[in-house]
Simulated assay, not measured.
Amino acid sequence: MGKPLINTKIIQITSGRGPAECSWVVAQILKHFLESVNNKDIEYKILHREKGIENMTLQSVTVQLKGNNLSRFLSQWIGTIQWIGTSTFRPQHKRKNWFVGLYEIRKSEQFEILEKDITYQATKSSGPGGQHVNKVSSAIRATHLPTKTQVLVMDSRSQHQNRKIAKARLQEKVTVVQLESLKSGVKNQWKNHLTLERGNPVQVFKGTDFKKNTIVKKFKKQRCALKNELRNQLNN
């Protein structure tokens, strides 16, 4: 048997335009989600956090996952997540059902920049160092062509070392640029899902202890469709 396929996915947990209570739920969901990730031996890296207006809350968080069978694992999480409980900020509030979303970012952009997309230009270093620094073209200006992002590195007298540093810094800047471009798209996606799927959560949690509530999914529509398809096949 061959080695299992290891792949990478990026997900975002978001409160959309929900109130502070939803941002609190996002922070709680992140804890449970990462606990589940660790139990499955999946590597994760938090790429971006957007804090909520209240302490210990998150409007959104973007997480990169790396491991086996990610699609199967995420199938239990992707969609609308419901918390049933009393507001931690407005105890007298009548609302008891709060919704957030967990979605995979299905964008073609790759967060790992490719060497073929970078151009390097040697230039003379500037600043203290006397004549030696001015005569040697050791500084490196690196440009990521797809995003037009640039960095200038003159940390070392070694051109080779400056190229390595430049690529690392370019990676950091490009990741920030890509995350910013993804945020608005994911928010729009979440607003659509919020309207469509409030009544069909993939996960339900209850109470201030955030105890998981097992839900039984009903597949009545799918069964009816399969029965109709089978009936049509028999009639043909």
Rank of each mutant, 00 (worst) to 15 (best):
Y120G: 00
Q121N: 06
A122K: 09
K124G: 10
S126G: 14
S126F: 13
G127C: 02
G127L: 06
P128G: 00
G129M: 03
G129E: 03
Q131S: 03
Q131W: 00
Q131I: 04
Q131L: 04
H132A: 11
H132T: 05
H132N: 07
N134T: 14
N134H: 06
N134E: 05
N134V: 11
K135H: 05
V136H: 04
V136A: 07
S137V: 02
S138E: 10
S138W: 02
A139L: 03
I140D: 00
I140R: 00
I140L: 01
R141G: 04
R141F: 13
H144G: 08
P146W: 06
K148R: 15
K148E: 12
Q150Y: 11
V151I: 04
V151S: 01
V151H: 00
L152H: 02
M154D: 06
M154A: 13
M154T: 09
D155L: 11
D155W: 04
R157P: 12
R157Q: 08
S158Q: 09
S158D: 13
H160T: 12
H160E: 14
Q161E: 10
Q161A: 10
Q161T: 15
I165P: 02
K167A: 08
K167Q: 09
A168K: 11
R169K: 06
R169M: 05
L170W: 02
L170Y: 02
Q171E: 15
Q171F: 12
E172G: 13
E172Y: 15
V174Q: 07
V174T: 04
T175I: 10
V176N: 06
V177S: 10
V177F: 09
V177E: 05
V177G: 09
Q178M: 01
L179Y: 02
L179H: 02
L179W: 04
E180W: 06
E180A: 08
S181V: 08
S181D: 14
L182H: 07
K183G: 01
S184G: 03
G185W: 12
G185K: 12
V186F: 01
V186Q: 05
V186I: 06
V186W: 01
K187P: 07
K187V: 11
N188G: 13
N188K: 15
N188Y: 09
N188Q: 15
Q189H: 11
Q189A: 15
